[in-house]
């Protein structure tokens, strides 16, 4: 995610405590590439999800999204399916770190989550900390990331961050 970019897409609604077994059931966890996992994203809740969304669509969920296992295949599957961002009232701790590390944009806003219905058109301005629900004409602010998280995001995820620490140039094609 580059700074200044607006993430725009339709909202797909999910409830509270969507756990990683729902995001990517373990029967698909003998794979780890985005293109392999993408077709099975959210299979524990809606097996048709990946085939129905348009690239850039957003998941909007309640509290504790991504609770459960540490499987990084969960945010990777969402990226593979083309999910542009996740807006939730709150996130499971490990999922939050994993999403930051793999470059899946996630935003915590109980208010934006509560006001959003399935199919609403959303626009997220990460740099300004703003979520606009264009369907309902509502705007919500969210707390900026901590400095440490912002640094990783600014670097493009943890991989470029570590490369820099190791004194290596950025990945080619990445």
């Amino acid at each position: 995610m580059s700074e200044g970019q607006i993430l725009r897409g339709r909202a797909w609604r999910f409830g509270d405590h969507v756990d990683t077994d729902v995001i990517i059931p373990v029967r698909y966890c003998n794979m780890f590439r985005p293109e392999e996992l993408g077709p099975h994203a959210m299979a524990g809740a809606d097996p048709e999800f990946a085939s129905r969304i348009a690239p850039g669509d957003l998941i909007v969920a309640g509290t504790n999204f991504g609770c459960g296992s540490s499987r990084e295949t969960a945010p990777v599957a969402l990226l593979g399916a083309g999910v542009g961002a996740v807006v939730a009232a709150s996130f499971g701790r490990i999922f939050f770190r994993n999403a930051v590390n793999v470059g899946l944009p996630i935003f915590e806003s109980p208010e934006a989550s509560a006001a959003c219905q399935a199919g609403d058109q959303l626009a997220v301005d990460a740099a300004r900390g703003l979520i606009r629900n264009e369907t309902r004409g509502l705007s919500f602010t969210f707390a900026p990331y901590s400095a440490q998280v912002a640094e990783i995001i600014a670097a493009g995820g943890l991989v470029p961050y570590v490369r820099r620490r190791l004194g290596l140039p950025p990945e080619r094609g990445g």
Binding site: R97, N98, N101
Partner: peptide
């Protein structure tokens, strides 16, 4: 790289689960 890594906290350690990218780092 497993969420139940917290088990080892019973030994008086700080033990916590992380994802694969954190672990690679």
């Amino acid at each position: 790289a497993d969420s139940h890594t917290c088990t080892a906290g019973a030994l008086g350690a700080f033990a916590t689960g992380v994802g694969s990218t954190d672990l690679a780092a």
